[in-house]
Each structure stands twice: as C-alpha cells, then as structure tokens.
Write a protein that binds this DNA or RNA. Structure first.
Length: 241
DNA sequence: ATAAATGTTAAGAA
DNA sequence: CTTCTTAACATTTA
C-alpha cells in the first residue's frame, strides 16, 4: 500500500474520531497495548505509516505488501491482527505490522518528507536527491527517507511520465530534469490518490504491469533494477538513459 | 496452479 | 563500522 492509500484510510476512519473503544480483539502482542476504554484522537499518515493516536500512545500500522483494513465488514475466514470495536462500528486490520509508539508523533516523523502532507518540502527532497549522485533514480524514488509514501507503482509511472530510464544515475539528469522528477513524484501521488478514491486506479496505469508502451507501442521491458532489486517496467524507446 | 508482487525488518555475512 | 544477502511475514492476482 502506497502513501495515497494511507491518506484515504485516514479519511475513512474519521467517523470514529473522539469515539471510545468498547472492545478489542487481536493477537496477544497487540492486545498487550491496552486499547480498551481509550478514546481515538486522531488518524494521520506519514508515508506508508498509518498513525492512530490515543491519549497516551499512538499505534503505527504498516500494511506492507498484503495488508488491508475493513470497516464494519469482517473478511470471512480471516483473523484480524487487530479489531477495534466502537459503539457504532468496528475497524478490522489484516496482515499488517503494528507497533506502539510512546513518543509524540511530531518527534518521530518529519512531515516535510511526506508526499501527501501539506507541509511536503520540494526543496528538501531535491537536495536529498542530489546528495545521491551515483544512485539509480528508481532507487532514490523508493527511498522512504526522501520520498515518504512513494511505492513501486508511483515509481514506475513517474519515470515513464518523465521519460527517465529507471537505471539513470541522479547525476546523469540535468538540474531541470531532477527538479521535474521531484515535482512529478508529488503531482502523480495526488493523481494516484484521486484515481484510487474513485476506484479506477488500475485503469490509468500506463507502464506498470503493462505489456505495450501506450506511446510508441513497443514492448515494455520488465526487470529488477537497482540496489533495492525491485521490478521496473519501462519503455526503451521513450525512457532514455 | 504456481508464481510474482502496491514492502520492511532483522540477523548474519562479507 | 558499513554494506550486502537472506529469510521471514502473508495475500491476491494473473
């Protein structure tokens, strides 16, 4: 799950804000956190982290590749890692990593790195990008310390939109191209968010998991790239190195 | 039906 | 002290 989806999760949890937890179910480790009777204060996201705050702690939920959540509609034959029951509804979290944070969220996370935050700082991202001149652009985009929330779909789509080869080194891009890359990571994250909300995200993929380039019609190259060894989909004609 | 994939972390090796 | 490799986790889709 990428950043935009986490933002949507926050919105879907809004009806439960200020509500008290009346019952909890979950794995023993998660239950030891002691949710019972606590009031749900805020739902925020930072990158791919969902942050649910209660009076004296915050839980961080990471959905990784396969995690999911449901509201008022448990998945059949599936045991949630955490189930929070409020008087007027229940939230279920499946196959995710849950951690309890005691420190205030503002001390742990830099909102300027979060692509979905109104405080996102393009200059900071650009400067961090330029600090890695020898890195491949596909790797840098996926670096959560630089582009928090950016995942493999966004990576591939942004590189295609900008016409950059995933294995291009940062220093091989012109200054203007570097700026354009940073900017489009932000722009496309928000487009992703809108499409996802309308449930039409996949329909708009241009290169990710595609067989043919929508521009020139040639076959899409698919291979793992970079130190991160994640799949890149790209068009050799349209994405120069 | 087998495999690959919207991801991260911890542990051990080099 | 890094940096790299591997495994573990867990679910849906092609």
């Amino acid at each position: 799950m990428e950043g935009p989806s986490l933002k949507i999760a926050c919105e879907e949890l809004r009806p439960f804000l200020k509500k008290r937890i009346v019952a909890v179910r979950g794995t023993p480790k998660v239950l030891s956190i002691g949710f019972r009777g606590k009031v749900f204060r805020s739902a925020r996201s930072w990158g791919k982290h969902l942050l649910l705050t209660f009076d004296d702690f915050t839980i961080r939920i990471h959905f990784l590749m396969f995690g999911s959540y449901r509201i008022d509609d448990p998945r059949p034959n599936r045991i949630p890692k955490l189930e929070l029951r409020f008087s007027k509804g229940t939230v279920y979290f499946y196959s995710c990593a849950i951690k309890c944070l005691e420190e205030p969220v503002s001390k742990i996370y830099d909102v300027e790195k979060d692509l979905m935050s109104s405080h996102w700082n393009a200059r900071k991202a650009l400067s961090a990008l330029r600090d890695q001149p020898d890195a491949e652009v596909a790797d840098v985009l996926m670096d959560q310390e630089i582009f928090a929330g950016l995942g493999n779909i966004i990576k591939n789509e942004v590189l295609f939109r900008r016409g950059f080869h995933p294995q291009s080194r940062v220093k091989e891009l012109t200054s203007a191209q570097q700026r354009a890359l940073v900017k489009d990571a932000h722009v496309y994250s928000w487009i992703f968010y809108e499409w996802k909300k309308k449930n039409e995200l996949k329909r708009h993929w241009q290169i990710f998991r595609k067989r043919k380039c929508p521009v020139c019609g040639s076959g899409v190259k698919k291979r793992k790239t970079g130190k991160l060894d994640r799949v890149s989909h790209y068009c050799l004609g349209c994405q120069s190195k």
